[in-house]
Amino acid sequence: MMHDHDENALSPELFAPADSIQALEDAAQGSGLSFWQDTARRLRSNKTACICMASVVILVAGSIIFPQISGYTVSEQDLLNINLGFFSEGHLFGTDEIGRDMFTRVWYGTGISLTIAFSAVLIDLLIGAVYGGISGYTGGRVDEMMMRIVDIIIGIPQLIIVILLMVVMKPGIATIIIAYSTVGWTGMARLVRGQVLKLRGSEYVLASRLLGASPARIIARDLLPNTLGIIIVELTLTIPSAIFTEAFLSYIGLGVQIPLASLGTLASDGASGFLLHPHLLMVPTVFLSATMLTFNLLGDALRDILDPRMRS
């Protein structure tokens, strides 16, 4: 009645009881990794994310170091050596129409653009987080009113307001950051408010479930990391938009002013002289696009990694 192909191999001793109920093996069940460990592991295995993060490090480090060691300053002119191309003697990326070294300028410009972008995004985070946090926490009519204000601000075309603000204030690094932040915080506000609402909801659910774990622990362990993740993704994806805004402003003359330089000013300078000296546009373009691309791809990768659905 049974079909055991190895009947001889079954000896009666095998049918004695096992020594003990075998270990309730659980730990090795694959989970048990904390949120951050799991995130770190996913991050490492995602090639795009790794390349992007390396790229960020290179850009930031380069923008700090290279202008110092290149041997030229940002505004040092050398009218004897104008419009040199790539790999010219002494100038890896050539010079511009008044002899300034492009290598120095482009790394310096990257630094300025990154500074503006990071600062603007961080201020957005601060304002947005506070505003959204208060709105979500207070709830009720206050929340509704605050969100309506946000709706209206979002309804107004942001770039136009930024341009107006730049007309009013004197163009410069600080004013660009201020102008951008004035209208850019709304996205973060909505996000934070949404998360705060979720947190509030869970607190009540937890309390009513009367489980042993305190709500604070569960918030800290599961919800907060999730929230942080979403915020990090939003920050990463907003950086390219800040860089773009700066570049745009520079193109219409409202950006960073001489003697400083940013990727935006370099690109717009290069665009006008493009027909005769393509490298003047190429160099800042590559850096500008690489920077924006890096943060966009990084944001995408982070979003995929932190997507709760992928974690089941």
């Binding site: 390219p240 773009f244 570049a247 745009f248 193109y251 690109a267 717009s268 665009a271 493009f274 027909l275 393509p278 546009l281 373009t285 500008l288 696009s289 690489a290 924006m292 691309l293 966009n296 791809l297």
Partner: peptide, 22 residues
């Protein structure tokens, strides 16, 4: 698409103008 969101229009415009129109 990634390139599209990373290259500002004034750069793209200049480039295309040079390579295609000229």
């Amino acid at each position: 698409a990634a390139l599209g969101i990373s290259v500002p229009s004034f750069i793209l415009g200049s480039l295309l103008q040079y390579y295609l129109s000229i």
